[in-house]
């Protein structure tokens, strides 16, 4: 029951946003004229707005509501337990492990992908033969699902040793780099999850390259030329002319990668299940919610994820929209 009223109030607030302009103005005819001007447009987008209002904001709100209940088991319970789920979660050891894992993963994944993507963009920037080929090779993993990626890499990240050495370790062995042997995500170290940054980086560093490449090429040649005329060496041209223009690109890449690392689920899920060393909040949410039935806990984890992502995404959207308006 509470649900029904909640969701109507949710879509109600959405409608209030959309319909700000429908309040009767001082001059009725003017209003009618304006209404005729933008009314049809509003009408055309309203189905989408209503759907998104419900499926995004309504559901997010509903999920947050669940995080304040004691809902456990298969029958929904909409009581109010305050912030109990949150304080329990902060004391929950698995969640603490998950957060630490996520931090390690995010750090290695973003750092690695940025570095690799940047290097690739720099290598391609000046124009090389077969550039299209190189670009395609660096980008194609983006077209493959995380599930397929995980299934391939699960075999590459095999940690068998001795006779049963396989995967990347075997490859290292074959090319005389045997000392690189690693237990990957099965090592007891708390850096185990960093191994997953390998498939994740494989999948996404091409994206970073594409962003940087677009950024590098949007630097007007005249600007560089001007600096060169002033006698600046190429390195200085890069530092003083190109670098400042790449900062926004860097920011985009960091934000995109950070939000992907927080919400990715299937890559970890398909590489190794029930391995706490590569457990993240996104996985814990799935595994605690649906089978054992800890719905309130699952909703709490999801809410925290939402806030984590909003923390990087909201300023980014705000900044993007503002930049666009300035143009």
């Amino acid at each position: 029951m509470t649900q029904t009223s909640r969701s109507t109030s949710e879509s109600g607030s959405g409608a209030a946003v959309v319909g700000r302009g429908t309040q009767p103005g001082p001059k009725a005819s003017k209003v009618r004229r304006r209404l005729r001007a933008w009314g049809p447009g509003l009408l055309l987008v309203s189905p989408s707005l209503v759907l998104l209002g419900i499926f995004v904001y309504g559901f997010l709100g509903w999920n947050i509501r669940v995080s304040f209940t004691s809902w456990r088991g298969q029958t929904p319970v909409y009581d109010w337990v305050g912030t109990r789920n949150y304080s329990e979660l902060f004391d929950n050891e698995r969640f603490q492990i998950d957060v630490r894992n996520l931090a390690v993963f995010t750090f290695v994944f973003i750092g690695g992908s940025l570095l690799l993507g940047f290097v690739m963009a720099m290598l391609l920037e000046k124009g090389v033969r077969f550039e299209a080929f190189f670009r395609s090779v660096f980008l194609f993993p983006m077209a493959i699902s995380f599930i397929a990626t995980a299934i391939i890499w699960r075999w590459l990240l095999n940690n068998g040793s001795g006779e049963s050495t396989a995967g990347l370790n075997k490859l290292f062995d074959n090319i005389g780099l045997g000392f690189l042997f690693s237990d990957w995500h099965k090592t007891p170290s708390s850096w185990a999850i960093a191994a997953i940054a390998l498939p994740a980086g494989w999948a996404l560093s091409g994206y970073v390259m594409a962003l940087f490449l677009a950024g590098l090429r949007s630097v007007p040649e005249e600007l560089r030329e001007a600096a060169r005329v002033d006698g600046a060496p190429e390195r200085k041209v890069f530092w003083h002319v190109v670098r400042p223009m790449l900062l926004p690109v860097l920011m985009s890449a960091v934000v995109i990668l950070a939000h992907i690392s927080m919400k990715t689920f299937d890559l970890f899920y398909a590489i190794d299940q029930g391995n706490l060393r590569i457990d993240t909040p996104a996985l814990y949410m799935w595994f605690t919610t649906f089978q054992p039935g800890f719905f309130a806990r699952g909703a709490t984890i999801a809410t925290l994820l939402l806030f984590g992502i909003a923390l990087v995404i909201v300023p980014y959207i705000w900044w993007s929209v503002r930049t666009e308006r300035r143009k």
Binding site: V56, F59, L60, N63, I301, T303
Partner: peptide
Amino acid sequence: VFPLILFGMFIPYQAILIPM
């Protein structure tokens, strides 16, 4: 409205899973 729509692109789907 536009930024509000955009935000829908980035939300973690875990956060709408139960209600959805």
